[in-house]
């Protein structure tokens, strides 16, 4: 075991007879941003929920600072902050009430909590909407509220499940900048995404999930170097064409048959963009 804050060793996760993850190994370096990338249904969220101890692995072990997480659940809960794709807060409470409530669950004392909530609301730019019910705020604000809830305990590890999903480019960029700022304070960030650009721009490490397994994982720059690529799109092209698999984007289309129309459109646009680039290259 090296200087990794989280390590997954031979982790398999089955839901009934359905295998989602099959004997995966993954190391998360401390203080860095790690992206887990894969198509919908590949098990990205499952990995995050395994790390947060919400799910128990069918096989294998998960370590946090070299300790089995299921033997240190209380520590995990105290030191981890987590945000899920759909958001995890109370719609019937205001932004401030949500933050105060979750802060109290972390047993933060009242004085400190009030200060921290105010700071967080300013930090994620929700202060002006602090007394608005969560059900009445926009999608971007919901994502930021969920992030703020995940930060309420000053976590050492921040786990974000598709924090930019369904956001327009401007909001996505804003969100990723916030994540980067959090990371600069020393927080280890693990997040899932389907967008390769995010990996290129914001991540130190990446794990590529495909068919129940992690097929590539390491430093982004090293992976790019290994495949002689300047961006992750190129890396993906090479990985998928070399292994004779369906392209990553095609696999996404297949996997996302049941996903929201909006997400589908986004992915199809991305595919068209990709094909357009290919077409232009071929012309040249």
């Amino acid at each position: 075991m090296g200087d990794y804050i989280i390590e997954l060793k031979g982790v398999t996760k089955k839901f009934g007879k359905n295998t989602v993850l099959s004997s995966i190994d993954l190391n998360i370096p401390e203080g860095e941003i790690t992206a887990i990338i894969g198509a919908s249904g590949e098990g990205k969220s499952t990995i995050l929920k395994l790390i947060t101890s919400f799910y128990r692995p069918t096989k294998g072990k998960i370590y946090y600072s070299k300790n089995d997480i299921f033997k240190n659940i209380t520590r995990i809960k105290k030191e981890f902050g987590s945000s899920i794709e759909s958001g995890s807060f109370y719609d019937a409470l205001t932004i401030k009430e949500n933050l105060m409530y979750f802060g109290r669950l972390y047993k933060v004392d009242s004085k400190t909590l009030k200060k921290r909530v105010n700071r967080l609301m300013h930090f994620i730019n929700l202060y002006n909407a602090r007394n608005v019910y969560a059900k009445n705020i926009s999608l971007g604000m919901k994502k930021r509220l969920d992030l703020a809830c995940a930060l309420i305990n000053n976590p050492k590890v921040l786990i974000l499940d598709e924090p930019t999903a369904d956001l327009d480019p401007l909001l996505r960029n804003q969100m990723l900048k916030i994540v980067k700022r959090i990371n600069k304070n020393g927080t280890t960030v693990i997040f899932t995404t389907q967008l390769l650009e995010e990996v290129d721009e914001f991540c130190d490490n990446v794990a590529i999930l495909y068919n129940e397994k992690i097929i590539e994982h390491g430093k982004v720059k090293n992976i790019k170097k290994k495949h002689h690529c300047s961006d992750m799109n190129c890396v993906f092209e090479k990985i998928f064409s070399r292994k004779g698999r369906k392209s990553y984007q095609e696999s996404i289309i297949v996997k996302t048959k049941l996903e929201t129309e909006q997400e589908k459109k986004r992915l199809i646009l991305s595919l068209m963009k990709k094909k357009g680039k290919k077409h232009r290259r071929n012309k040249k």
Binding site: F54, S82, S86, S88, F89, D91, L105, Y106, C149
Partner: peptide, 9 residues
């Protein structure tokens, strides 16, 4: 939707 966050506290 807050069930997950309650759980991880």
């Amino acid at each position: 939707r807050a069930y997950f966050r309650n759980f991880i506290t």
